[in-house]
Design a protein around this nucleic acid. Structure first.
Length: 484
RNA sequence: GGCUCCGUUGUCUAGAGGCCUAGGACGCCGCCCUCUCAAGGCGGAAACACGGGUUCGAAUCCCGUCGGAGCUGCCA
């Protein structure tokens, strides 16, 4: 039987990183096995409907290269792939369960249930639906239905015995039915199936062989199995995935502003880096490789190497991955990616982006660092004269003044303003004066950059700024040092 | 509370009784290179939650304790 996996997000408007990893693993396993990867949108909760949310899902998956074989936009033999469009399909299945005694109509209102729940909890008990409506006769049910009383359909869960299943990651699981089961709602008052019900129906109808999902479903799986068995359907292989955490206590969450794919991409993280990193939170290839293209991940992926313990999302490691990916980028691609970030502060300044790109590529961990890194090129910052002091370079404002005085005529007399001739001319002057390189180059770089750290040295910066601007800044430095 | 799962350096992990004086990676620290910052090279500190067993031998098996997480919705 061909492997079929699915990613079944609910359209909330954002792609959570944990969800993206789930999608990735589903994709990887399907591809690894030469099977199919299906995208299904679970929007049975109409109150949570967010316009445009499905596009976010499409865009994210596409941006990451996770292609699906069947889904709302590409169709397929098991469509539709949006649960709200399948709405009418679920009720007959629920009714079938009513017929067989595995489910029943419930006419309790939310208020009535809340009341009973409160009473039980006040008495120190644990509430579970009390099967109140299970005991209605067929006639009573018909009457209430005919009278138009709002209803739901509930599962008639067993109250004794236990349910066992095997999970690929967690092994053999056994739950006492009295604890794990309850008469969960299958069809809601609004006619929509609950997630739990729609999930089982759809996974079966779509021929899903491997259900890979978050481990929060570990303890509700017995209820799913009850449904599969009630229908006489084959139970899929379960692969429960650990949670991606922010820290030991908390899941990655929207409140932290760092849980979504878009948060990272907007900051200038590369989708490939994000995906590579995410793949390694909760899974490893069994050897010491860390860098994987998507095809390489497909090749290496093995559901038996999935971890059982939750992983904490480490932005630092992600950032390192991103920096590595940036360093490995084709220089032209890097230039293309960096240019918009340069533009934020350098637009119209006539800076040589190609050279700037060469200088910044190995210094960029995340693209959003670029504007701050290069802003000094646009305008000389109002710097503190103490920047001229550097112990190791053997320089201070006094030394700097004489160094700049030495260098000023050399630069002035240059006809070819290239890095090479700047280098040769200045180095010759330093030699001749018998000075240490640092004692001249540090002050020069500070004078023309106005910041302690720059992507490149004095010659690169001077070349980037051009003759006129370099001399202008040099003069500002000289003036300030003379007046100090 | 009940049920269930998890527990190797700060973090991701390797480890399926002797190969472990516990390996790799990020981060951290130091040195080298160097006009700064990166990059690069070299080196370092840093872990088997705890307590009992089983065994000639335990990070690996068993029990307990502690810690953390999940579920306990007409959310998914």
């Amino acid at each position: 039987m061909p492997v079929r996996t699915r990613f079944a997000p609910s359209p909330t408007g954002f792609m959570h990183l944990g969800g993206l990893r789930t999608a990735l693993y589903n994709y990887l396993y399907a591809r690894r096995c030469g099977g199919q990867f299906i995208l299904r949108i679970e929007d049975t909760d109409q109150e949570r409907f967010v316009p445009g949310a499905t596009e976010v899902i499409y865009d994210t998956l596409k941006g990451c290269g996770l292609t699906w074989d069947e889904g709302p936009d590409v169709g397929g033999p098991c469509g539709p792939y949006i649960q709200s469009e399948r709405k009418d399909l679920y009720l007959p299945y629920a009714q079938q369960l009513v017929e067989s005694g595995h489910a029943y109509y419930c006419f309790c209102s939310k208020e009535e249930i809340d009341e009973r729940r409160a009473a039980v909890e006040a008495a120190g008990g644990t509430w579970k639906y009390d099967k109140h409506c299970l005991h209605l006769s067929k006639e009573e049910v018909q009457e209430k239905l005919a009278a138009g009383i709002p209803w739901t359909i509930r599962m008639n869960a067993p109250t004794e015995g236990e349910t066992s299943y095997h999970d690929t990651v967690f092994g053999d699981m056994t739950f006492p039915n009295a604890e794990a089961m309850d008469d969960m709602v299958l069809i809601k008052q609004d006619g929509m199936p609950t997630y739990n019900f729609a999930n089982v129906i759809d996974d079966h109808l779509m021929g899903i062989t491997h259900v890979m999902r978050g481990m929060e479903y570990l303890s509700s799986t017995p209820r799913y199995n009850f449904l599969y068995e009630a229908f006489g359907w084959e139970v899929p292989t379960y692969v429960h995935l650990t949670t991606v955490m922010r820290d030991a206590q908390h899941k990655l969450s929207k409140r932290d502003g760092d849980a979504y794919y878009s948060d990272f991409v907007d900051k200038g993280y590369l989708p490939e880096a994000l995906l590579n990193y995410l793949a390694l939170v909760g899974w490893n290839p069994g050897d010491e490789r860390e860098f994987f293209t998507l095809p390489e991940l497909v090749e290496a992926f093995d559901i038996h190497r999935l971890n059982k313990s939750p992983g904490i999302f480490d932005v630092q490691k992600l950032t390192w991955f991103n920096a590595e990916y940036i360093r490995r980028m084709d220089p032209e691609k890097y230039l293309e990616a960096a240019a918009p970030w340069f533009d934020r502060v350098l637009a119209g300044k006539g800076i040589d982006y190609a050279r700037l790109a060469e200088l910044t590529q190995s210094r960029t961990e995340v693209f959003n660092q670029l504007p701050d890194m290069v802003a000094f090129l646009a305008e000389l910052p109002d710097y503190d004269l103490e920047l001229y002091t550097h112990k190791k370079m053997k320089t201070n404002p006094e030394v700097a003044l004489s160094s700049l005085k030495l260098v000023r005529p050399v630069l002035e007399g240059l006809t070819d303003w290239s890095e090479a001739s700047l280098h040769d001319a200045v180095m010759a002057a330093i030699q001749e004066a018998g000075l240490k390189n640092g004692a001249v180059l540090w002050p020069l770089r500070i004078a023309i950059a106005g910041v302690a750290n720059t992507p490149g040295g004095a010659f690169e910066i001077a070349a980037l700024l051009g003759r006129e601007e370099t001399l202008r800044r040099l003069d500002i430095g000289l003036r300030r040092l003379e007046n100090a």
